[in-house]
C-alpha cells in the first residue's frame, strides 16, 4: 500500500496538468522544477546563458515531464536534454541543441575520474611492439559530431558579448540568428564537424578535429572484451589515408589528450 501511495504521489508530482498553485502540494511541484532548473543550469551553462533563466526553466519544466529524474544525482540528469531541445518551439532550437550536446560532454568530462599523468611511458613507443601498447587518454575523453561548428559559434557569441557588452538574452538571440543564417542554411549537405572533449586539469577542453582523427580516436576508444584495443590494431583498422599518426601524436601529447602508454 505504501508503495502504491508513493507511486501515486510521484505521478502527481510529475504531472503538469495537476499543477497546484495554492496548496502545500504545489510547493513540492515548484521545488522539483526549481531544483531541476538549478541543476541543469550548471550542466548546460552555455545554453542557460544564451536563453536566460525564464526560457531555460520553461525548457527544463517541459523536459522533466517527458524524462522524469531516474538518477539520484542531479549532476547525471539531462542526458537527453540536447535532443529534447531540438524538438521544442524555442528560437534557434537546432543551435541550442548542438550547444547542449557540447555542454553535457564537458560537464561529464569535469566529473570523470582523474587520470595519473605518466608521460615518460611514451618512450615505450620507440622500443615496444605497438600491438602490445595502449594509449592512456586523459580524463573524460569523449567524441562528438555535429552539423554545426559549435566551437566557432561559442567563440563568436562570446566575442560579441564581450565586445558589445551584451547583457540581455534578446541581443544574444540576435547573434544566434546571424549564426543561423551563416551556418544552418548553408550547411545542409556538408559533412559534419567533429570534436574531441577531454579534461587535462580541472576544466574540460574541446577542440575541432578532422574526420580521420575522429575515426582514429573512435577506434582507439573501442573496447574488445572490456580491453581497449592496441595501437597496432587501431592502425590496422584505419583506412582513411588523410590520417597520420606522426602528425597527430605530437599534438595529442602537447594538448595532453594522452597522458601515457600502457604495455600489455
Amino acid at each position: 500500500m505504501l508503495k502504491e501511495s508513493q507511486s501515486t504521489f510521484m505521478q502527481t508530482l510529475y504531472s503538469p496538468e495537476k499543477m497546484s498553485q495554492d496548496t502545500g502540494f504545489g510547493i513540492y511541484q515548484r521545488s522539483l522544477i526549481a531544483n531541476a532548473a538549478r541543476a541543469l543550469s550548471i550542466t548546460f551553462s552555455t545554453v542557460h546563458s544564451y536563453v536566460g533563466n525564464a526560457e531555460f526553466t520553461k525548457l527544463v519544466r517541459a523536459y522533466l515531464y517527458v524524462y522524469p529524474k531516474t538518477q539520484y544525482d542531479w549532476g547525471e540528469y539531462g542526458d537527453k536534454f540536447a535532443t529534447f531541445i531540438s524538438t521544442q518551439p524555442v528560437s534557434h532550437a537546432m543551435i541550442l541543441a548542438e550547444i547542449a550536446k557540447l555542454d553535457f560532454a564537458c560537464h561529464q568530462a569535469e566529473r570523470s575520474a582523474d587520470i595519473v599523468n605518466d608521460i615518460e611511458t611514451l618512450s615505450l613507443l620507440s622500443s615496444e611492439d605497438p600491438y602490445h601498447l595502449h594509449f592512456q587518454f586523459n580524463a573524460g575523453l569523449t567524441l562528438l559530431s555535429s552539423h554545426l561548428p559549435i566551437d566557432i559559434i561559442k567563440q563568436l557569441v562570446s566575442q560579441r558579448v564581450t565586445e558589445d557588452k551584451i547583457t540581455n538574452v534578446n541581443d544574444i538571440s540576435n547573434i544566434l540568428h546571424e549564426v543561423s543564417n551563416t551556418y544552418e542554411q548553408s550547411n545542409e549537405n556538408k559533412a559534419p564537424y567533429y570534436f574531441v572533449i577531454w579534461r587535462p586539469d580541472m576544466q574540460a577542453n574541446y577542440e575541432q578535429i578532422t574526420q580521420g582523427e575522429f575515426v582514429w580516436l573512435s577506434v582507439l576508444k573501442n573496447r574488445k572484451d572490456k580491453v581497449q584495443i592496441s595501437i597496432g590494431e587501431a592502425l590496422d583498422r584505419i583506412t582513411d589515408e588523410t590520417f597520420s599518426l606522426v602528425d597527430w601524436l605530437p599534438n595529442a601529447i602537447s594538448n595532453r589528450l594522452i597522458c601515457g602508454i600502457t604495455l600489455k
Binding site: K3, Q6, S7, F9, M10, Q11, L13, Y14, Y28, S31, L32, N35, A36, A39, P68, K69, T70, Q71, Y72, W74
Partner: peptide
C-alpha cells in the same frame, strides 16, 4: 517511487 515501471527520484 515507481513511475511507469521505472524507479524515479523526486529530487526532493
Amino acid at each position: 517511487a515507481e513511475l511507469s515501471s521505472a524507479s524515479t527520484h523526486a529530487g526532493d
